[in-house]
Write a protein that binds this DNA or RNA. Structure first.
Length: 556
RNA sequence: GGCGCCGUCGCCAAGUGGUAAGGCAGAGGUCUGCAAAACCUUUAUCACCAGUUCGAAUCUGGUCGGCGCCUCCA
């Protein structure tokens, strides 16, 4: 089976062929560090995380680079706002129209922390802002998610010499011009020579030129031209260059960092759909104009998270930060939600849509509850298998050496998982495959002794089959980045989360269960049911098993 | 206005030419002192219209509805 990937550049699925197998050079656009990340960023990184893990699983040598954009207008703007302080006029800005008290409080606390950190440092406040949010990215927002670590995480501020060299090269090739301290990429000239501008985003340069109106005061020669180097304005961070003090334009940094880290051309470039134009289109133009060779073979773009069908954005105030998201659900639940949809499709959280028959319930919660249930199902199944295997080893009827039952469904698990992932990383199908596998696992776990005795190989073949299925399932879960270790630990984690969320007390729950067990021993069914109903009312469901009583917190 | 995407069972979501994966919810059953666990069975012709084809949810044209990018954006 070969791996097929939808390439945005060619608008079709292509069989993936690395430039230098088994190496896969992969560049993912990271974040601009001017604020907290939201679940849209999370979606992007979790989607690509599963993709990277699958490459590794297929024995590719993945060289993964994810950058930080730490020089940018928004960072500078944020620094200016922090300097102006809480009383500044910036608070009347339209962008903050949707801020409520909680958001303001959080925002101003953050500003205070940054101001504190900046004190005594002889650096531009914008640099401190960037540093601060890089720390938050690593140590808070994404720390709980167990993302595959990049080989490197280049920052624009550390690549100024390479950026300047790249711009010089583009100018030397005649595709950029200086204009009053700025340097612009010359789109019409470039396109006239290469016919390649607009290939990624499906844009037509002639039309762009027609529609463009270049104001006389504009430093640009034509509308589609974009800035490679911006002249410094007073009070902004800047670096010396052949064109005077200034800073890089928005797109050039990714061109410089990706090629510096991965070489040109490299295999795959990823990012959000909103980056296709102009960011990625311009990256291609710059890099190819400089090196006169292809920039990147395959372009992959993830879909958005939308709320009520509309893209989350700061200006609409409809975004959910990762910090908020983690109050709603633990990391593996978010990962499950992300994996349940193909990476290129949108994930919609509508607040108004009907959910499970209950009008007005938020789908955010509905999605979380379903993901919770499925994860519990997965890990309860694995836990059951692990317990059976552990007990068998203890009582000496170990199945070691016994061949697992030859069941086509068992072999199908991994094959179907790989087929799904091979088909443009279809994690939704891959997750469905895992669900099917869990079904087969449960079937063998719950098999009656009489039925097990009839298996080819006898009763001990049942256990060896359980072991085999569980191994396969843990393996494929790990490929998606879902927990592959001790299932009990996962379940405890999920339960602790729910207990805390419901404001319950573990000790009380356990005491109730003990009391009920005593009643059951006395065959006092009425008392037993009374306790069970009381727990149920509190949101705790019980499940009696041969080894005692298990409990779980109900969702919703 | 330009470019592009989407519309699949009550809800979520796969499926890009061969006759609709999976999950949730619903119904029935096995098991169980009871139990919302587990397992089994069961529930759609794919927004609409017209074409291409032996055959289309899948291709073409059109209609309606939703969205994205074109300014910063994962």
């Amino acid at each position: 089976m070969s791996l097929r990937i939808y390439n945005v550049l060619t608008q079709q699925k292509e069989t993936f062929a690395p430039i230098q197998p088994p190496q896969v050079n992969f560049y993912l656009c990271g974040v601009t560090v001017y604020g907290r990340s939201h679940i849209g960023h999370l979606r992007c990184f979790l989607s690509f995380d599963a993709i990277l893990r699958y490459f590794r699983y297929r024995d590719y040598d993945v060289r993964f680079v994810r950058n930080f954009t730490d020089i940018d207008d928004k960072i500078i703007a944020r620094a200016a706002e922090i300097s102006a302080g809480p009383e500044g006029a910036w608070r009347q800005d339209e962008a903050y129209a949707n801020y409520d008290d909680a958001m303001w409080s959080e925002r101003l606390d953050e500003d205070a922390l940054i101001r504190e950190r900046a004190a005594g440092q002889d650096r531009h406040l914008a640099e401190v802002v960037a540093d601060y949010f890089i720390d938050v990215f690593h140590n808070e927002d994404f720390q709980p998610f167990d993302l595959v670590a990049p080989m490197s995480e280049p920052r624009v501020s550390q690549y100024i010499p390479q950026i300047i060299a790249l711009i010089e090269k583009i100018m030397a090739n005649g595709f950029a011009y200086e204009s009053a301290g700025d340097v612009y990429f010359d789109v019409p000239t470039y396109h006239a020579k290469t016919q390649s501008y607009g290939r990624l985003s499906g844009r037509d340069v002639a039309q762009m030129l027609e529609g463009a109106r270049v104001a006389p005061s504009d430093k640009k020669r034509s509308g589609p031209d974009f800035v490679l180097w911006k002249q410094a304005r007073p009070g902004e961070p800047s670096w010396p260059s052949p064109w005077g003090d200034g800073r890089p334009g928005w797109h050039i940094e990714c061109s410089a960092m990706s090629v510096e880290e991965l070489g040109q051309p490299f295999d795959i470039h990823g990012g959000g759909k909103d980056l296709i134009f102009p960011h990625h289109e311009n990256e291609i133009a710059q890099s190819e104009a400089a090196a006169q060779m292809p920039y990147c073979h395959t372009w992959m773009h993830n879909g958005f998270i939308t709320v009520d069908g509309v893209k989350m954005s700061k200006s609409l105030g409809n975004f959910i930060t990762i910090a908020e998201g983690l109050k709603m659900a633990p990391p593996e639940v978010w990962r499950y939600i992300v994996l349940s949809t193909h990476y290129a499709n949108p994930i919609d959280f509508s607040r108004t849509r009907e959910v499970q028959g209950a009008q007005g319930t938020e789908v955010v919660r509905g999605s979380i509850d379903i993901a919770f249930d499925r994860l519990e199902y997965f890990y309860e199944s694995l836990q059951k298998a692990a317990q059976q295997l552990a007990e068998a080893a203890v009582d000496g009827s170990d199945a070691a050496g016994q061949a697992p039952v030859d069941d086509a469904r068992v072999d199908a698990i991994k094959a179907q998982f790989c087929a799904a992932m091979d088909d443009d990383f279809n994690t939704a199908r891959a997750v469905a495959t895992i669900g099917e596998g869990m079904k087969v696992l449960n079937e063998f776990c719950d098999m009656k002794a009489k039925a097990a005795a009839k298996l080819p190989g006898g009763a001990s073949a049942r256990l060896s089959t359980v072991a085999k299925i569980a191994d396969i399932l843990r393996e494929v879960l790990g490929v998606l980045g879902l927990p592959a270790g001790d299932p009990t630990a996962v379940l405890e984690g999920l339960r602790d989360f729910s207990v805390a969320q419901r404001g319950l007390d573990r000790a009380w729950i356990e005491a109730q269960i003990d009391a009920r067990l005593a009643a059951r021993d006395a065959r006092d069914w009425a008392r037993s049911d009374e306790i069970r109903d009381a727990l149920l009312a509190a949101g705790v469901a019980l499940r009696d098993g041969p080894k005692g009583t298990a409990w779980k917190v109900l969702r919703g």
